[in-house]
Design a binder for these strands. Structure first.
Length: 275
DNA sequence: CTTGCCCCCTGCACGC
DNA sequence: TGCGTGCAGGGGGCAA
């Protein structure tokens, strides 16, 4: 998936295109995503409703409507959300089309090859804060701090990479950026969480903000499936310094980058400068 | 409570 | 060429 930066890029791209617009016709593929597509709720709440806000929470994209309902999208591993001319033939794995009322030549499409994504409708009686209650703080906001991480991780022995990828701890850090952040902070992904020092937590916080901010500025880093809100490939890729570079020399110290499996996910680290 | 394991699904690169 | 295998950016359920 798209990790936080990619979702943020989609969010910023879609916001000006959707604000003030209304949806009319709604079509679904009939396929279930990670959750079934709530077709009835979409027809009831999204049809003829105007978009008043487009924002991101973690890796979720929230489209708020003027009837107080919200559409909550998660892109999973291969999800894409973009505006396309309505005349564009349906692509394989297009699962939802929302036609824009006041510009019927265009429609919002959700495409997801692997169907690990999700689409949910939050009705006006459902509290969004409650819906996202299990999510940790945003890494680009103040609540995410060295003190917070030290407190949260003080009694955990799991590898620090797994800790950073736990959305209950902090949202938005996925498999690519977890490796990149720990490389920047010179800390091994394998380090037990309760053996990270206060100074190192500070470094992790600093590097998390730095890496994510740079990735957003670069337009999201793309491997294969991310397409920006306009439907064009995200050409502007943040240079990844460890992810996918196993067998190559570290760009910082020249030692070897190695690849290991951690919690079932590929993990990259430099043997020389990460301890 | 924490932690690792397995699963959901499709497509692609690779080796034989 | 064709087929089998492993792997891919997420995350939730489950059992130990």
């Amino acid at each position: 998936m798209p990790e936080l930066p990619e979702v943020e890029v989609v969010c910023r791209g879609l916001r000006p295109l959707l604000m003030g617009r209304s949806f009319s016709q709604i079509r679904t593929s009939g396929h279930s995503l990670r959750l079934p597509i709530p077709e009835d709720a979409l027809k009831r709440w999204a049809a003829d409703a105007m978009v008043v806000e487009v924002r991101r929470r973690g890796k979720y994209l929230v489209v708020v409507l003027d009837n107080q309902a919200s559409l909550v999208f998660h892109l999973g591993m291969t999800g894409r959300l973009g505006l396309f001319p309505a005349a564009t033939p349906l692509a394989a794995h297009d699962h939802l089309c929302l036609v824009l009322t006041d510009n019927e030549r265009m429609e919002l499409r959700f495409n997801d090859t692997r169907r690990f994504g999700s689409i949910q409708v939050l009705t006006p009686d459902q509290d969004e804060a409650l819906h996202f209650a299990a999510l940790g703080p945003e890494p680009l906001q103040g609540e995410f701090s060295a003190d917070y991480l030290a407190d949260k991780g003080g009694r955990r022995s799991q590898p620090v990479k797994n800790f950073l990828m736990d959305s209950r701890v902090v949202v938005g850090i996925g498999n690519i950026y977890a490796s990149e952040i720990l490389h920047e902070a010179r800390i091994s992904p394998l380090r037990p969480t309760n053996q990270v020092s206060a100074l190192e937590w500070k470094s992790i916080v600093t590097q998390t903000r730095s890496v994510l901010t740079r990735a957003i500025a670069a337009g999201g880093s793309t491997i294969a499936d991310f397409v920006n809100a306009g439907g064009k490939p995200g050409y502007f890729q943040l240079e990844l310094k460890v992810y996918g570079r196993h067998g190559k020399p570290c760009l910082r110290c020249g030692a070897m980058i190695v690849k290991e499996t951690l919690a079932g996910r590929s993990t990259y680290r430099c043997e020389g400068c990460q301890r």
